[in-house]
């Protein structure tokens, strides 16, 4: 596999009024891979992405795209990537074709070049039949397809996607995932932010889990899960008031690595389920906690997220992204 570094983010910091949105963040993206920035809203994903597209200047540290610094060589960097912002970045009064024509001129294509490429892209995203209707008549999925066509118009080596499937129905989501896989197959490097675990798991070759402006861990979804080791035992118990005491009774037991309290039970990371289950059951018995449900499974990406951030992505406070 090609291990050329396409994107290098080096000790990036960005503060707003003393608040550190991104705090000493470093990662590298290899050419030809799909790289994900996974984290809750407000984690610093968008700030990182906006630095890469040259629209934010780092407070300290640096970022480079294909070897070019995003501040000193911003003009050059802008010719190298395509950008797909979040879904609303559509001019509702313009038609799909007019969006693409506008961008064609902004990337300095001639009329013929632009016309040819627009026809190809409309075909690719299956919007040919709707190309001449104002975007306000488009469905969410169609807007997203138009967004992607806009991002691909410059025929870039690198594509940045900001929350590509946020708020889409299942069918449109799967369609977008297909496009992204196809782009990778064509040799494009894709960098995307997401706060969907399944999306990161299914789509990304590698991902960085980001929380509070820092990279918590980085690797392929499989690596991250294996690195966690062992199994996850999930309990649901009736006496939720005793969750705290059960958790503390389990912590420090030899077969148990970590205990995380959820709303209705516990997620327990263990060496192996066989060794840990008797310990867990005994402790529950002693505290007279009646088990509603118990299961164990190999670590999932959600467990990786909890292990590194101390909370579930679903529970992470939906703080407002800094714009």
């Amino acid at each position: 596999m090609d291990r050329t570094i396409a994107i290098d983010v080096n000790r990036l910091c960005k503060s707003y009024d003393g608040h550190k949105a991104v705090d000493d963040l470093s990662f590298q993206v290899y050419a030809g891979e799909i790289f994900g920035l996974l984290g809750p809203n407000g984690a610093g994903k968008s700030t990182t992405l906006r630095t890469l597209i040259t629209l934010l200047h780092p407070t300290s540290g640096s970022a480079s795209v294909l070897g070019h610094d995003t501040v000193r060589e911003a003009d050059l960097v802008r010719t190298l990537f395509g950008y797909v912002p979040q879904e609303r970045a559509i001019d509702r009064f313009l038609t799909g074709r007019e969006h693409l024509e506008l961008l064609g001129a902004l990337y300095h294509l001639t009329k013929e070049e632009a016309g040819k490429r627009i026809a190809e892209l409309l075909k690719l995203v299956e919007l040919e039949a709707h190309a001449d209707r104002p975007a306000k008549t488009y469905s969410g999925g169609m807007k997203r397809k138009l967004d992607i066509a806009c991002g691909l118009l410059p025929n870039p080596k690198i594509l940045f996607l900001d929350e590509p499937t946020l708020g889409l129905d299942v069918q449109s989501r799967l369609r977008i995932w297909d496009y992204i896989r196809m782009l990778k197959a064509r040799g494009m490097t894709v960098v995307m932010t997401t706060n969907y675990l399944d999306e990161a798991d299914q789509l990304c070759d590698r991902l960085a889990i980001i929380d509070s402006g820092k990279v918590k861990t980085i690797g392929s979804p499989a690596e991250l899960k294996v690195a966690l080791g062992g199994d996850i035992v999930s309990l649901t118990i009736k006496e939720t008031a005793r969750l705290g005491s059960l958790a503390s009774a389990l912590k420090g037991q030899p077969a148990i690595r970590a205990v995380n309290t959820t709303e209705t039970g516990l997620d327990i990371r263990v060496e192996s389920a066989e060794k840990a289950l008797p310990v867990i059951l005994e402790a529950a018995n002693k505290l007279e906690c009646r088990l509603d449900f118990i299961d164990y499974h190999r670590p999932r990406l959600d467990d990786v997220f909890i292990a590194h951030t101390g909370r579930s992505l679903k529970d992470a406070a939906p703080a407002e992204e800094h714009n």
């Binding site: 906006r50 597209i53 040259t54 629209l55 003009d75 802008r78 010719t79 990537f81 950008y83 912002p85 970045a89 559509i90 001019d91 961008l103 902004l106 990337y107 300095h108 806009c150 410059p154």
Partner: peptide
């Protein structure tokens, strides 16, 4: 939309 415009060269 402005971001989209300004990220173009």
């Amino acid at each position: 939309f402005l971001e989209r415009l300004m990220s173009a060269p």
